[in-house]
């Protein structure tokens, strides 16, 4: 029997199980992604239903063996939860979906927890939503071992030049744009690659072209790693008529 006490965690997803229980999918600080069975979580009399909140730091304990241990206790952590409103909420849902698909159970990745935690608080700043999401995506790919190659031209090993345009090939890297380039491969400017290479995210945040290029790039790479899975949360950013 394994017992874990007072672990800080976020709920990524919860689904109802039987009459009054829930299965919680969590991102924990020291144990990575964990699934727990939580009893008595629903109904008007449940004492803990008010604590089963997404995007809120929680402290929980669990015990049991196998894939689905039991939740023993859950309460809100003693820190102010991020205040997410409107589009920030939809963005946070997107991040949860990303983690549920890309992160495996029990990958003990403390860094991912830190990035997730930081990203939720970053999303409080509504005018920086785009760059906060991109930053999270890039860090996540990096931690999972799928990091972008943005430092050197992939074919020649030459330094990136700010005023050139590049095409980003999967599992290869940026290659100088040639005439008649394949349109399905995303293009990115040298200046944006250089900013990424030095992690100067502020430079990207201030440039609408950079932001849009980077969005296409991360989407392209993430789609590749998702395989046949589609992110449903992307629909939340489109008006009804375009779904």
């Amino acid at each position: 029997m394994r017992v874990v006490n007072t672990q800080i965690a976020y709920i990524l997803h919860k689904r109802s199980y039987r009459e009054s229980s829930s299965i919680l999918e969590l991102l924990t600080k020291d144990h990575g992604r964990v699934a727990l069975m939580a009893r008595g979580t629903r109904g008007a009399r449940s004492r803990i239903s008010g604590n089963l909140l997404l995007f809120t730091p929680l402290v929980l304990s669990w015990q049991g063996k196998g894939d689905l241990p039991y939740l023993k206790s859950i309460e809100r952590a003693d820190i102010k939860p991020p205040v997410l409103k409107n589009k920030a909420l939809l963005s946070a849902m997107y991040i949860n979906e990303l983690l549920m698909y890309l992160l495996h159970r029990d990958d003990e990745q403390e860094k991912i927890f830190e990035q997730y935690h930081a990203c939720l608080y970053a999303l409080e700043e509504v005018d920086r939503l785009e760059i906060s999401l991109r930053q999270f995506e890039i860090k996540l790919l990096e931690i999972l071992g799928f990091g972008l190659n943005v430092h050197l031209e992939a074919d020649t090993g030459e330094a990136i030049t700010a005023d050139r345009r590049y095409q980003y090939f999967l599992e290869h890297g940026p290659v100088k744009c040639r005439n008649g380039a394949d349109v399905s491969v995303p293009q990115i400017s040298g200046a944006c690659l250089l900013a990424l290479s030095d992690e100067r995210f502020q430079v990207i945040a201030e440039n609408a072209d950079h932001l849009s290029e980077l969005k296409h790039l991360t989407r392209y790479v993430i789609n590749h790693h998702l395989g046949h899975k589609k992110l449903k949360s992307r629909e939340l950013f489109r008006p009804m008529s375009k779904i």
Binding site: M100, E235, M240
Partner: peptide
């Protein structure tokens, strides 16, 4: 309600009819 991880997006909530 919207719940992408359960496969529920705007279309599943009938928001086309509401629109």
């Amino acid at each position: 309600h919207l719940s992408p991880l359960d496969g529920i997006g705007p279309a599943e909530l009938g928001l086309g009819i509401l629109e």
